[in-house]
Amino acid sequence: MVFTDEQLKDFCMSRCYSLDGQTAVVTGGSTGLGLAITRCLVSAGAKVVVLSYESEEQACASLKEFGDKTVFYQFDITDTAHTQEIAGRILREHGPVGILVNNAGNHCKKYIWDMTVEDYVKVLNVHLVGAFALTKAFVPQMKELGRGRILFQASMTSYIGQPMVAGYATAKAGYLGLIHTLTAELAEFGITVNAIAPGWIDTPMFHKAVDNDPPRLAKIMGRIPAKTVGDPMDVGMCAAFLCSDAARYISGTCIPVDGGALIGF
């Protein structure tokens, strides 16, 4: 089929990037970058099921602006004994899930000589084990649908060394191996698996880290060719793109949203 310029524009805007009729699950989707992802998925037409360990009161206050386009379930992603149960409940109450965004995370900022094995394992359980369990729970129905979009929230620490985040860096680097294997297993079923690696983004966590540390801020800014930190919506828009039909032939990759920081000198 040959499109006119106007037809192509209409096709791309109304279909390629639309998430109308899609149901997405976003872990940690009521705060920080997760909230930006929720906002962008809703704007593209999706209904978003948010999973988070925070209280219903806190989450609903953040999600109020979206009305009935979001729904919240309190769930600890590390409670893998009940992952299948929460996934089944979501499928019963909201129908097929075509999008899963593994965004939940935590930190343990300690040098390795101060970090306990329990500290290390706790971080891995949130980022890797919990995300793996939830992905495993939703994959069978995605195979039945013949379509699926699975995203993982990676990091600059997937690629570069930073002190005091051994568990976090291990988990974020682990996502790269996971998306490669899952792509090899799931691509033939119409399921794409990708990751996003946010750079330095203008969030409360960023300001907490740099506002009272001018040398650290200068070091960060000197590494970013764009000469500015990112906006949370930059990450959200990338997620919406990867979940859309416009990205149907993209799988097994990790997209840095970093203003060029990974190649910055």
Rank of each mutant, 00 (worst) to 15 (best):
V2F: 07
L8I: 04
M13I: 09
Y17F: 15
G21E: 11
Q22V: 10
I37M: 15
R39I: 10
A46T: 03
L51Y: 00
S52I: 05
Y53Q: 10
S55H: 01
Q58G: 04
C60Q: 11
G67D: 08
K69G: 00
T70R: 08
V71Q: 04
T80Q: 01
A81T: 08
H82N: 13
T83D: 00
T83P: 01
Q84Y: 06
G88A: 02
E93M: 01
E93T: 03
H94P: 00
H94Y: 11
L100T: 06
H107D: 13
K109Q: 15
V117Q: 12
E118P: 00
D119Q: 11
N125Y: 07
L128H: 12
A131H: 09
T135S: 07
L145E: 14
A154Y: 04
S155D: 15
T157G: 06
P163W: 09
P163H: 02
T170E: 04
G174M: 13
G174F: 13
H180S: 12
T181L: 15
L186D: 05
F189Y: 11
P198H: 05
D202R: 08
D202P: 08
M205N: 14
K208H: 15
A209T: 13
A209M: 15
D213M: 08
P215D: 01
R216S: 04
L217E: 13
K219D: 14
I220H: 03
G222S: 10
K227T: 02
T228F: 12
V229L: 03
D231H: 12
M233T: 10
A239K: 11
F241E: 04
D245N: 06
A246E: 06
A246F: 02
C254R: 11
V257L: 09
D258C: 13
I263Q: 11
